[in-house]
Amino acid sequence: MYQPIHPLRSSTLPLRRINYHVNHWGPEQSPLPPLVLLHGWMDVGASYQFTVDALRQQRRILAPDWRGFGQTSTPQADHYVFADYLADLDMLLDHYAPGQAVDLVGHSMGGNVAMMYAGVRPERIRRLVNLEGFGMPATRPAQAPTRYAQWIDEIKQLHQGEKTLNTYDDASGVARRLMKTNPRLSQDKADWLAQHWARPNAQGRWEILGDPAHKVTSAQLFRVDETLALYARITAQVLAVEASDDSLGQWWKERYSLDEYHERLTHVPNCRMAVVQDAGHMLHHDQPEAVARLIEEFLN
């Protein structure tokens, strides 16, 4: 199994009526700004371990598990609203970095949260690294009736037990699942991730540490005009990182393209781009050393 160079520590913070689990690395005190790492959908904060191990500079690093993921508790609700991530992040920073501007890294969904938050609270972010946080395809207001109906139907399916997450015989089954999703993931890293990505339930089956309600489609349409307004308010320098595999094109086909994403980034006042070679969407697993170099060179 993978042996971390910098073992993670854990803390739990009561926040907004749930218990937030936060992973920590590095010294508690550092002259450098705190580095905050935001994970993606159906992932956990510990997912950044390989990148943290590849960083050369010692600094304070925090990686929360989003609500309903990892070891953070599940709210008393049957769906998730994206704006909650912004409020959660704001209150986490109030606690762990009061009065400080932080360096923020977000992957996938976490990258989307980071970009939005940097537009909402520009003074809280010094520099921002967006790892494949592409946003979503553009929508039209005319799609709203169908979207609301879809959301209602999926809420019903959730309560009828039709939206569930797979369970596995043991941790090795979880590791095989991770390697099937990402063929570049090595066995030792998959075995390590499985211990943080899942746990045995009362029946001894290993279940993913994610609330099935995360599978319910958002009731709200993705509004590009709102997103661009947020981008325009970002004052931090931004590094937008992509993997050489076009995961965006693989997901969305003709509905959304890298060219469209790149056009959106022109609305960010100070943004540069980089590509990590021989990597897919989980680029921080595929090429942690390359990702760590990009992050450190940009932050410095």
Rank of each mutant, 00 (worst) to 15 (best):
T72K: 06
S172N: 15
L221M: 00
G110I: 08
Q157M: 12
A240Y: 10
V44H: 03
Q220V: 02
N270S: 11
P288R: 03
A144R: 14
Y20S: 12
D43S: 03
Q203V: 11
P137F: 01
Q71L: 15
A236E: 11
S11V: 08
M273R: 13
Q250L: 11
E207D: 10
V113H: 08
V224P: 10
G161F: 02
M42G: 10
L230R: 13
L221S: 00
W252H: 14
K215E: 09
D153Y: 15
D191N: 09
A232L: 09
L299I: 09
S257I: 15
M273W: 09
L86Q: 09
D191R: 06
N270T: 08
E132Y: 00
Q49I: 00
T181Q: 03
W41Q: 06
W197R: 13
P137T: 01
T139C: 10
Q57M: 10
S247N: 15
V102C: 08
Q237K: 14
G119M: 06
R17I: 11
H24S: 13
Y80Q: 07
L248G: 07
G111F: 01
L8F: 10
F69D: 12
I5T: 11
Y168L: 02
A274M: 05
F69S: 12
M1F: 03
D94H: 04
P200E: 04
R126V: 07
N182I: 00
Y2K: 04
Y48H: 04
H21M: 05
L93G: 03
P14R: 08
T266N: 15
R67P: 15
W251H: 15
P31Y: 00
H214P: 07
P122H: 07
Q58Y: 03
V276W: 10
R56G: 13
Q143H: 12
D188G: 06
F134S: 13
G173P: 13
G26C: 01
N270V: 07
D169E: 12
I125D: 09
E260D: 15
Q29G: 05
P212R: 03
E297Y: 05
A229L: 11
Q71H: 13
W197L: 09
S73N: 12
A144K: 14
S244D: 13
S30P: 01
S47K: 02
M179W: 00
K156D: 15
G111Y: 01
T266E: 14
V224Y: 00
D78N: 12
G111K: 06
V241A: 05
N300F: 08
L283P: 00
H267L: 14
R140Q: 15
Q49Y: 02
M91C: 13
G26D: 02
A202S: 14
A54F: 03
T235V: 11
L15C: 08
F82T: 06
V224H: 03
R17C: 06
Y117I: 15
W41S: 08
T51A: 04
R233F: 05
A83K: 12
S257Y: 05
P27H: 06
L93K: 04
T266V: 12
N201I: 00
A219K: 15
I155C: 15
H107N: 03
G106W: 00
T51C: 05
Y96C: 04
V275N: 15
R205M: 13
P4S: 03
F82C: 07
G119A: 10
R67L: 02
G133N: 07
I234K: 14
L178T: 01
D90E: 11
P269G: 08
Q250V: 07
D103A: 01
R205C: 12
L35M: 02
E207C: 08
V174C: 04
S247I: 13
A46D: 05
Q157I: 13
